[in-house]
Amino acid sequence: MTEQAVREALGRVMDPEIPTISIVDLGMVDEVRVHAEHVEVALLPTFLGCPALDLIEEAVLKAIPSAVVTFRHDPPWSTERITEAGKEGLRRFGIAPPDDVVRCPRCGSEQVLAENLFGPTRCRAIYYCRACRSPFEAFKAI
């Protein structure tokens, strides 16, 4: 397996809670090293102690059976690592990406209110769009 093939396979491993963004577009892949018998995949957890890590490891092993997955905190992950394609994936799922200005993922309006800085998962906050009168979630800028 070439490194590029590994990265392409990782690009098809989706976040277990947000199926429209891959772990590559989330910026979780820190390093890929191809060896004769196995492939080392070093991932950066998004949040400390994120409960989805076991599921992500399982999904990587399903995509690349010879993978040895490790998690490291250095360098620390941050939302700046999310790619443009990743931000589009977040919007498609109804989540505003972590930009300086929070816009409604449905209508694009900036007329939004933060309803709760905490949400259904540790990485999301709850907003309300005054333009299209819909509640939505926003990825925290962390």
């Binding site: 949040f47 400390l48 102690g49 994120c50 409960p51 905190h73 309803e115 709760n116 800085l117 905490f118 949400g119 259904p120 540790r122 709850i126």
Partner: peptide, 20 residues
């Protein structure tokens, strides 16, 4: 409900920091 969600998330954050 907002306080409930917030305190539950705060709990998860603090415990994850403890675990690390």
């Amino acid at each position: 409900v907002e306080a409930d969600v917030a305190l539950s998330s705060l709990a998860q954050d603090e415990m994850a920091h403890a675990a690390a």
